[in-house]
């Protein structure tokens, strides 16, 4: 009886899940259809969801001439760099604010939390003029640095560290272990699930960020894939090569999707572990 209800649930959920997937399937399918066919109709076989007539020419062209691989590499560098940076500054600051006592702690905490209210998009103009004065535009660090200043990571890590029972720390203190060692050897390993969450949030943010790269990167060498795709999806090009644009979209997405599929088990596991401890 319970078993039966479970299968019904799975079945019932499969329908929205399939609908959820349709746009993605469609993109993949379009990317395998000839361009001049797509200029006339996008629904040749099964509403276009099945790539018939089939061609791989769009991908061949992409790898032969395209800048998509370079942009993709840029996105990886920027996203990874930003993620590492955010993890570094957030865990250290989050730990200090959550577990250590020091003068002016309360006002400092407020100062940092107030920063949560400053949306990044509200400061992109002064940041732009600042980086222009420094001559920093069109560089990886220009793409990474602004996000590292956003205190949401500190906030997340602080909440997490606060929730850790103090007896572990006290035991270590009695042993005479220094604060930095406690942070490094005791707290960081405990914080892995929270760091994982933060890392995923940051990586996705970095991967998807559009406004800041749009303003800061004008040279091809520093286009991220997000920006690069925007530059080729303008409608003038679209009507002349839908299949190719879709292929770029697939190439841009495929590695991240794969990465996520591998990564996700670990994420869920990490969350489960973190949950059972809490």
């Amino acid at each position: 009886m319970l078993k039966g209800r479970y299968y019904w649930l799975v079945f019932a959920l499969s329908i929205p899940a399939f609908i959820w997937l349709v746009p993605t399937i469609w993109m993949v399918s379009l990317s395998f259809q000839p361009n001049d066919l797509l200029a006339r109709t996008t629904s040749s076989t099964a509403l276009g969801l099945v790539p018939l007539p089939f061609t791989a020419a769009n991908y061949a062209a992409l790898f032969q001439y395209g800048q998509t691989p370079l942009w993709f590499l840029n996105s990886v560098i920027v996203s990874l760099g930003m993620t590492l940076g955010v993890l570094l500054v957030s865990t250290t600051a989050g730990y200090a604010l959550a577990r250590l006592d020091f003068p002016y702690k309360a006002p400092l905490t407020v100062l940092i939390l107030v920063g949560l209210m400053v949306p990044e998009q509200a400061v992109f103009i002064p940041l732009y003029t600042m980086f222009a004065d420094f001559g920093w535009h069109n560089s990886y660090h220009a793409l990474m640095l602004p996000r590292m200043a956003v205190p949401i990571g500190v906030f997340l890590m602080m909440s997490f560290f606060k929730a850790i029972p103090s007896d572990i720390e006290e035991a270590a203190r009695l042993e005479g272990v220094g604060w930095l060692q406690i942070f490094w050897y005791v707290m960081l390993p405990l914080a892995r699930p929270a760091m994982m969450t933060l890392a995923i949030l940051t990586f996705l943010y970095a991967w998807n960020d559009y406004l800041w790269p749009l303003v800061s990167a004008q040279q091809r060498e520093f286009f991220t894939i997000t920006l690069g795709l925007a530059s080729i999806q303008s409608n003038f090009a679209q009507s002349e090569g839908l299949g190719r644009v879709m292929a770029s979209g697939v190439i841009a997405s495929l590695p991240v999707v794969l990465l996520f599929l591998i990564f996700q088990r670990y994420v869920v596991q990490a969350m489960t572990v973190g949950g059972s401890k809490g």
């Binding site: 940076g85 604010l97 020091f102 400061v123 600042m130 956003v150 930095l180």
Partner: peptide, 29 residues
């Protein structure tokens, strides 16, 4: 055995974030 006092450790741990925070968020604001 530990060299750093609590405040010093805190200052050291807060330094990376505070510098990017002040430079790339507070100042631009």
């Amino acid at each position: 055995r530990h060299v750093l006092g609590q405040s010093q450790a805190a200052a050291l741990l807060l330094l990376p974030f505070m510098s990017v925070y002040l430079l790339f968020l507070v100042y631009p604001f």
